[in-house]
Design a binder for these strands. Structure first.
Lengths: 249, 249
DNA sequence: TTAAAAGCTGACCATTCGGTCAGATTTTTT
DNA sequence: AAAAAATCTGACCGAATGGTCAGCTTTTAA
């Protein structure tokens, strides 16, 4: 997992950094260390590679995720982004060069998150346990990082132009690999016959919907689901999927 | 269904027409007849209420759906919209006043479509038949009007500010009503115990994902699903849901 | 046939947009 | 302490945006 997300992070930065009209005014040393954002080591190794830069980038990215989630790429202006980060517009340009580069940086962070969790699906695992764990992971992400989910959803809704390459390579490979595991379970009679690819589509859809379409869900439910509602949602998805896969508890 | 969609159309137009800074320069006679777009009666009753207006509005709305689906509200400019419709920008303003009014008109059309199909869920029906029919209806909409689905998804992703009222009233009422039917089936032992509200969320998510996240699906599948792929998707969703509801075929 | 209504559009406008840059300030290195 | 590097930002710019409007043409009603 750590390996995977690191590899993807690189791939993203790569795809990203190449095609700008103007290169950023500052070095922009593309390196997120192995331990990404632990606050403890902050003071110790704070010497070398732009401690200020790291902090500011983090501030900006966090604010940008919120803003992009609310309005999408086109719907967010640099001045909004700047205001949300509590910094002048020029400072954002100093750190990320262009609005698109900032957007891609947000996406890169999210993508790594999004691809995690599938390690639970292993040949040796019991299908029910593996699926339950995967669903829990996805629902947790939905509950704890709804903005991340929404930015990701928005990107795909509009054609995934910025992350298409990664989807076509890494995500496709991941699904292929895990599909073989599921097919193994099926032919071993351990679960019902379900098209693995479509199973992934359904899992992603059912879990992400609680973040992406939260406004619809709130409207139908009459009020935001809250912690209790989300717990109930998770139970629903778990039992729904397990039953659909012929894995009655 | 006809009654429902008409009522909603009105409600939408109402919510719509009120809150503009400037009122449209032309009368804008808000009336879509009962038989919305049959080409046969076109020549016969073409006399009274602005035949040209009706045709032009239709042209513009159709083009706008495509454009809004691709780029969202903020990402679409009036000049793009105009170019897609093959008309000068001022003409769009003549017919719809503002970009937002045009967007709302597109949404209103879509919303009626989206709310259809739930009539299949009736107390007297067999649960398996009813659910299968509902899923088919949703999948058909996804396959035939993916742009409509995407505009709708985009609207909800960004808070459903333009249709929140209708979701909170009409959609909520619909779900409440149909949930009672499903609860009836459950307590009669006709299907497994599934939270009806969350069942709807899952159904919507699983079916719409094939339009809204088509780029992701194409990337993972290696190529667009096409007609055969969509047929397979429908079979997957049907059997998946039926099994999850304890309705083995 | 004529007057009125509806349809149409090129030219224009104020505002906002993403982005640049010179130069000041702060931090780090020597 | 001095030099170098990195950080920071107000002022500015050309382009694009949504929207307006006067005046034209076409369609409809009288």
């Amino acid at each position: 997992m750590a390996v995977l997300s690191k590899r993807l992070g690189k791939a993203t930065d790569l795809e990203l950094g190449s095609s700008h009209p103007s290169s950023p005014p500052a070095p922009l040393l593309k390196e997120r260390g192995a331990s990404s954002r632990d606050a403890s080591a902050e003071a110790s190794r704070a010497v070398k590679p732009g401690r200020i830069r790291q902090e500011q980038e983090h501030t900006i990215l966090q604010a940008a995720e919120q803003v992009f989630a609310r309005a999408g790429f086109a719907g967010s202006s640099m001045s909004e982004l700047a205001q949300a980060a509590g910094l002048p517009k020029s400072t954002l340009h100093y750190y990320f060069g262009t609005k698109e580069a900032l957007y891609r940086a947000v996406l890169a962070n999210i993508l790594a998150l999004w691809l995690e969790g599938a390690e639970a699906i292993q040949p040796e695992a019991a299908p029910a346990d593996a699926l339950r764990q995967y669903i829990r992971h996805k629902m947790q992400l939905t509950a704890e990082r709804p903005d991340a989910s929404r930015v990701f959803a928005n990107e795909m809704l509009h054609g995934a132009v910025h992350i298409g390459d990664i989807l076509r390579t890494d995500l496709r490979a991941l699904v292929k690999r895990k599909s073989r595991v599921i097919e193994g379970w099926i032919s071993a009679g351990q679960m019902a016959s379900v098209d693995p690819m479509h199973l992934f589509f359904s899992l992603w859809a059912m879990t992400q919907t609680y973040a992406d379409f939260e406004s619809q869900i709130t409207a139908v439910a009459g009020a935001p689901l809250g912690a209790r509602g989300m717990r109930r949602a998770q139970e629903h998805v778990e039992s729904f999927v397990l039953r659909a896969c012929g894995l009655v508890s």
